[in-house]
Amino acid sequence: MSSETAIPRSVAARIPLRAPRSLRERLVGVVLLVCAACSVITTLGIVLVLIVETTAFFREVSFRQFFGDIQWTPLFAKKHFGIWALVSGTVLTSAIAILTAVPLGLMAAAYLSEFANERIRRLLKPSMEILAGIPTVVYGYFALTFMTPLLQKFIPSLAGFNALSPGLVMGIMIFPTVASLSEDAMYAVPTSLREAAYALGATRLATTFRVVMPSAFSGIGASVILGVSRAIGETMIVAIAAGQQPRFTFDPRVPVETMTAYIVQVSLGDTPTGTLEYRTIFAVGMVLFVFTLALNVVAHRLRQGVLKDSVQ
């Protein structure tokens, strides 16, 4: 996730870089540079593909139709292109996920960093990571065939496809991200601050909430933002369990469609390439990409701030 900039460079890099002696050395250098450039080319490729197709899309559909409407029916005869219908589905499921993951994640992080002994910490942190490694299609199955029927026992008005069940399952999926990154941030708070709090007579609980958590605020913030970013980009859980009915609503009991689920829906059908319907997935993809990129950049900034603080 992060690019550690403070790492000492290896010896090879410290040897004065004269022009390489042999042709082979130079050739190897070029080949390796090409490998490294591949990641940059990937980014450029993503941006280029999205821009080209989105531009073609907006030649036929105006910005007003896209941003000024709350109906999304590009696959029907009477076409509407109101992105807000998909955005509301994404926001709704992601909000449920975050409301699940953040309280659980912060409590888990506080416990692991401030109360648990080293052995428990070493045992529990990798166990949490298992949750992040389960394929999302498996979570989707779980949301659809287990969580939804379970919730329907308590909420009879819950539809078979809804935002609540995939939201909750998504929350479990991103819980390790939030817990692990916040725990890192809390663990990095200097012990001297805790000792000062104890010396003033603070209990461990007060120290955790009034000293450690505020000090680790930017790291905790970064973990939450990365969690939001993952929830927004998550595809299979919502494609399986949230339904395929784009609607502008914040009711968690009814079927909705997220941006990601729409992209999946179109690519499962046989929409011919080059048509307007086909281009909608790139326009939606562009919105998704901008959302997640912005969140990742903010999270990255916050984390860099943490690194600087902990050096001092």
């Binding site: 996730m1 993503i46 593909v49 790139f282 990742n296």
Partner: peptide
Amino acid sequence: YTRPSRITSLIELNISNLAGVPSIIYGLL
């Protein structure tokens, strides 16, 4: 093979950003 320069920090920043791109966007690419 190289020492820190503007190019390497660009590549590093790029890699950390790529790690956060949703997998479905890779599908579009």
